[in-house]
Amino acid sequence: MATISLRAVEKFYGKTQVTHGVSLEIPSGEFVVILGPSGCGKSTLLRMIAGLESISKGEIAIAGKVVNDLEPRARGCAMVFQNYALYPHMTVAENIGYALKVAGISKAERATRIAKVAETIGLADYLNRKPAQLSGGQRQRVAMGRAMIREPEVFLFDEPLSNLDAKLRVQMRIEIRKLHNRLGATSVFVTHDQIEAMTLADRLVVMNAGRAEQVGSPAEIYRKPSSLFVAGFIGSPPMNLIPCEAKGSDTVTIEGHDIITGPHHQGQGTKLVLGIRPEDVTIGTGDFTLSVEFCEELGAARLYHGKLAQETFILQVAGAQGPVPEHIAFSLPQAAIHLFDARSGLRLGD
């Protein structure tokens, strides 16, 4: 088992800076998910840990040893790639056992270990097939088996589920988590899918434009997003974000209505952004009325779309039935309100 330390890691491609001083301590055995939109530098970060990209500035240490100048094979990491990257001309057994072959391990021992791994990933009957004869999910499992067989101290996953269909993705997600619980290797998992991130992570790192915006448990990040970006990125449907103005030290106004938000200590008239999750809005009474423009039926709930202060506003109503109403009265409960500074995007108050 190994800890991973990133210390002010930066990456430049020519003059373009892709990551800006990312620092992160990953304790041994933790499952960390790096989440962010495409192009935020999350894959680059993972590839720097793996040793597939050089580190422009800063340090990466695995198990206390700085690995900046080590070849991937010397770092003790195994990686699962997005497109599986199986060797097309080798059978499943050869694919899984290739790392051992390279390491010069005897054929007999290789066979035992391959059999054991194949058992774990449920592919014992497929060892003589070529990757082209497997389904997407099976290929994904071979890729995992190939990573597992070396009994690595660190597992790296580069969006491994994004090529699977929705149902299989859910299934593989559970399998990956089970596998982690059993093997206990430190794991870093990169994805742009927030559900994947929320369900898998012990700890979540939300990245934006090469910076780690927020690090914390999934629940923490969901309940207390530290910035406008995280607030808008995490959650589906996304958090409603409505521009407002400070009035007094614990109240804001939206279109003339005063809303008590709790202490924010901002001067009168400061531009703020009020955030509230669609499921946290109180329906039926209140100062505000939503003109329903459009309704999304999800089965268990409905999403009513409308506008508030010229911004899209979504109400999530669980168990709603019958005809879609034209107008819905609602209020914003104080406990569910998130406040952000409009200029810096940072969270205010608690």
Partner: peptide, 14 residues
């Protein structure tokens, strides 16, 4: 040949 194949072989130690 996809780059990932080369990278996978590097991760495998080749």
């Amino acid at each position: 040949i996809p780059d990932e194949l080369f990278e996978a072989s590097r991760m495998d130690g080749a």
